[in-house]
């Protein structure tokens, strides 16, 4: 654990220290650093933001601006299993909306939310590129193609 001198009480992981070091002198490195933090932790916490801000000399306001601008970055942790329903045109035309609705109903959460037990989160995403399998969904990195609302329960039960 390493202490950041800029504020009191917050600590960051050694992994974050490494990431900061890696991108410190890279032009535009903040984006790459945020990517690695997002991949590692599933979100970007305030303490990490503060640490990166100091180490990479990017104002906090800019970092917040970047995180909220890009849909891949998240300020809050996602569920253990992140369900992404593709809403690209090819999937939409083949009924992705009904699949998404079924996930909402089954999980009792809306898009962008996490279930109370932290197990599932739900996202609607733009084209995962599996148009040949439309409509498609992704749970963590597992792709499920040719979806229909009646397959939703079965897929969720795999992760229970």
């Amino acid at each position: 654990m390493s202490h950041c001198d800029g504020c009191t009480g917050c600590t960051v992981d050694d992994k974050v220290v490494k990431i900061a070091k890696k991108f410190k002198d890279v032009d535009g490195g903040i984006m790459s650093a945020l990517h690695e933090v997002q991949d590692e932790y599933g979100y970007i916490s305030e303490s990490v933001q503060k640490y990166l801000s100091k180490e990479l000399s990017v104002p906090m306001s800019d970092i917040y601006g970047i995180i909220t601008f890009y849909s891949r970055f998240s300020l809050v942790p996602k569920g253990k299993y992140n369900v992404q329903v593709c809403m690209g045109t090819a999937c939409y035309v083949k009924g992705a909306e009904d699949v998404l609705k079924e996930f909402k109903d089954e999980l009792k959460i809306d898009v962008g939310q996490v279930t109370e037990d932290g197990k599932f989160s739900l996202e609607s995403v733009r084209c995962i590129g599996a148009c040949g399998l439309a409509p498609a969904i992704v749970v963590n990195s597992e792709v499920y193609g040719k979806m229909s609302p009646d397959k939703v329960k079965e897929i969720l039960s795999k992760y229970n």
Binding site: G28, M31, Y70, S71, V125
Partner: peptide, 8 residues
């Protein structure tokens, strides 16, 4: 390589 982060 630089990675995009989901902004059309």
């Amino acid at each position: 390589l630089r990675l995009g982060a989901g902004a059309f």
